[in-house]
Design a binder for these strands. Sequence first.
DNA 1: TTAGTTTCTTAAACTACTTTATTTTTTTTG
DNA 2: CAAAAAAAATAAAGTAGTTTAAGAAACTAA
Lengths: 206, 206
Amino acid sequence: MRAHGICTDRWQQAKKMNKLNQHIKNLVSISDSYLSLILDKVVEKQFSKKEHLLYSDDYAKEVYFISSGCVRTYILDYNGIEHNISFAIENWWLGDLQSFINHTPANQNIQALEDTVTFSINQEDWNLLIKEIPEFVYYTRLLFRNTMFTHENRILQNLSFTAEERYLYFLNNYPDLSQRISQKHIASYIGITPEFLSMLRAKRKH
Amino acid sequence: MRAHGICTDRWQQAKKMNKLNQHIKNLVSISDSYLSLILDKVVEKQFSKKEHLLYSDDYAKEVYFISSGCVRTYILDYNGIEHNISFAIENWWLGDLQSFINHTPANQNIQALEDTVTFSINQEDWNLLIKEIPEFVYYTRLLFRNTMFTHENRILQNLSFTAEERYLYFLNNYPDLSQRISQKHIASYIGITPEFLSMLRAKRKH
DNA sequence: TTAGTTTCTTAAACTACTTTATTTTTTTTG
DNA sequence: CAAAAAAAATAAAGTAGTTTAAGAAACTAA
């Protein structure tokens, strides 16, 4: 990109998008011109703590790559109880992909747990990149594949682990998240009440 | 393919692979020559009821498209209890993809629940097809994406549904499987004991 | 800094689901 | 087809996790 005389604004933006740039290059080999085509479509957005990126029943018009901060996705059950589906921090993509791809109302809510900066791509540009850039197809294929593996492992856990084992697995596998995220939200993610998590933690101290 | 003078054996095989043929064509637009390149790599295998296609700790050397029959994938927990992860019938792909793709020992076991005919692709051929045929990349991207959605919905359910709701969801969404698969295996899939499922069913009759 | 809000802890009563054991029904196999 | 094996039903006792409630600790904001 540097060699192609991009104006200063673009160059500044490219610098800010360095994390996304690296993330793509780490997964697929891609020409600089294709890469800049992707980065051109990406828009920076800022969300303050507790702000929502998406509400369920709305349509997910974009997906997000997190540059800094932390968000959660959650569903509301018919009793009005929130259940955390996932967390995302720096260098993670997220979004309600079913809504985004199938143009259906979202099941998920997305909320910032910290002040957060994202790079988003909207549906139109996403489809354009998919059509124009085979490497973008490969890239998203790997993202889908990895998410599929993560989901699969979580299903295995839900079937065979106790609450305590799920908690320990979370601590071991997401030590960074464990520090940043409240117990209340971790409890919801592993599918137990905060009170029961508190009991488990008390038990482990002795 | 017919126009290209393929020998009778091939033509016979192609007829047998009609389901796979259709499955690919339904998801991506692909030339006949590429399609026959894929079908050339596919090998028919037969498994009798209760036979294993894969044992955990072995390496998954192939993935399977089911032409007829029914299989389950399951894990063994450290108490020796089996937990069903998924079922597959005609026109479904399955395999321990983590083992197959990452060349790690399998977590999953795969077992035929009925006499089953599969078309399998081994790792080497899979990688070759990925390298040579962009449409195969698109095809597998869609497979991964759909599996990802299915997994995601199951995680949502595990977080927000009771056992009874999970059972009703299974009945409604997989009516064909509900007929073919024993309650014992359905119970395991939704994460409860067969005894408790039996109770739920008795309760619903009144 | 203090009041207000949210999170965490503790504990007792409760419930969804498991465990164990026995009987009945269905399926498999020689 | 009969015998054996596997699956399903029922029931009683047990347990992992929930609910409710109330107080303590930790953030948040004027």
